[in-house]
Simulated scan of single mutants.
Amino acid sequence: MKHLKIRSITLLLAFLSVGFTYSAIAQGDKKSTAILDAMSSKYQKMKSFKANFTYTPEGGKPLKGDVTVKGAKYRLSIAGQEIYNDGKLMATYIKETNEVNLQDYDPAEAGELDPTKIYTAYKNGYRHAFIKEQKSGSRTLELIQLTSTSKNSQVAKVELLIDKVDKTIKNWKIFQKNGSQVNYTVDQFKPNLTVADSYFTFNSKQYPGVEVVDLR
Rank of each mutant, 00 (worst) to 15 (best):
E159V: 05
S180L: 10
T140W: 06
R216C: 04
K2S: 11
D104F: 11
L4P: 01
A121R: 02
N152P: 02
K167A: 08
D187L: 12
A108V: 14
F53V: 09
D163W: 07
G209H: 13
A108L: 12
S32V: 02
N171W: 09
D163S: 08
Y126P: 00
P62S: 02
A79M: 09
T10S: 04
K70D: 15
Y119V: 13
T92D: 12
L76S: 00
P115M: 02
D66N: 14
V210A: 00
P115H: 07
A129M: 06
L11I: 11
T21S: 15
M46Y: 13
T140D: 06
Y126Q: 00
R216M: 03
V69T: 04
G87L: 07
P62L: 01
M1G: 09
T140M: 03
Y43T: 10
N178P: 03
A24K: 13
D106H: 13
K30F: 04
S41G: 14
D214N: 12
Y43H: 10
N101C: 05
A121F: 07
M39G: 02
D114R: 03
Q103N: 14
A14H: 07
S136E: 15
A121D: 02
I35G: 01
K73E: 09
T33C: 02
N178V: 07
K95H: 09
A156F: 02
Y74I: 06
G137L: 04
L141H: 10
G179M: 04
N203L: 12
L215D: 12
A26E: 10
Y43C: 07
G209E: 11
T149C: 07
L146C: 02
F175C: 00
L89M: 15
H3E: 14
Y93M: 05
M46P: 11
F49V: 01
L113C: 11
S148G: 12
S17K: 03
V155F: 05
A34L: 08
V158Q: 02
Y105E: 04
P57K: 04
A121C: 04
K157N: 10
F49I: 01
T168N: 11
L12Y: 10
T168I: 12
R75D: 03
Y119G: 04
R139K: 10
L215T: 14
A72I: 09
D163M: 05
Y93P: 00
V182A: 07
T97V: 04
I118G: 11
Q181G: 03
L89H: 10
S153L: 06
L161A: 11
R7G: 11
A26N: 07
K5W: 13
I25R: 12
K88D: 15
